[in-house]
Design a protein around this nucleic acid. Structure first.
Lengths: 160, 160
DNA sequence: TGTATATAGTTGCATATGCAACTAATATGG
DNA sequence: CCATATTAGTTGCATATGCAACTATATACA
């Protein structure tokens, strides 16, 4: 009625599976939180903003349809509307009507936006490097990358 | 002035690093979202709740100090207060004063709470199995687990 | 012992997110 | 060309989260 491994007719995952899953979730949460905290500590905006700026910065002409942007950063459309609105208020992004599709709106990163992203980058970079990359050598990292890519590959289809 | 790899004096991460990092973040977000959606679709409460119930269910006596609980599920303390409050309103958890530490509060899972968790489990389980475990064989999974554990190990210290 | 400091938990207020209903524009199919 | 269904984006309202200030207990230490 007790024992250390209690309540276990849940034993339909192996320990390895459970640990892999839990590990993945916690690891990502921890790492993201580290970055988030670091940014906050230095007075920068949240990770969300960085992600959006980054996607825009690297996109053709520094701009994307809200729709596309949303897919890339994995935000729901109403959140895209809102974050872009906030970014616009800060002058980091501008919004323009799409000429060919009357429904479409482009978000376009401004110089100020590019600057900000560039300032945030070292903080981001160093944190991830310290708490993630530093744990692996080149070969391992490549293996890890390959593993992770396999998850994603089909994860995407699921969501469509 | 253009080219496909633009804006790149950010080249202080290798491609592998960038992809590993981005992959990790996106993969976890996608997977969690899949689970979340599946739960919602079947009329169950959010993943948050599941995580809390799970930690309590497997804990000694089905109860934990809010503080400990928070550490395990990676919530800030005010969010612990609140989620436990909501769970209590639903009769899934009860709160009791800690006898030895006057500041401490225990959250204790109720039978109803255990039941609910058990009902949610198959949904959770199947989703993760389908979108995660199914991509790997036993050996690979173990490797992946080991990788991930390495991140966590030190990630935790960072946050203390 | 008495004072200072740290820890556990809560709460008010501001902000962010989720949901569902809405507008406007495009695609589809007769 | 018209009626209908889709898609992009927005918005009001409810809920959840973050922050900072607060209470109460516990610990440290002079």
């Amino acid at each position: 009625m007790k024992g250390s491994k209690n309540t276990n007719n849940d034993r339909d995952w192996t320990d390895t599976e459970t640990e892999a899953w839990m590990g993945l979730v916690k690891a990502q949460q921890l790492l993201s939180r580290n970055v988030e905290d670091e940014l906050k500590k230095k007075g920068y905006p949240p990770l969300n903003w960085y992600d959006v700026l980054w996607e825009l910065d690297r996109a053709e002409d520094g701009s994307l349809r809200l729709n596309d942007l949303g897919k890339r950063v994995l935000f729901d459309k109403y959140n895209v509307t809102r974050i872009v609105q906030r970014l616009e208020e800060e002058g980091l992004v501008s919004r323009t009507q799409c000429p060919v599709d009357g429904r479409g709106i482009f978000a376009c990163i401004t110089d100020k936006g590019r600057m900000l992203r560039r300032e945030m980058w070292p903080v981001y970079k160093e944190t991830v490097k310290k708490s993630f990359f530093s744990k692996f050598n080149k070969k391992e990292l490549k293996e890890l990358k390959n593993f992770i890519e396999r998850i994603q590959a089909s994860g995407l289809e699921e969501t469509i």
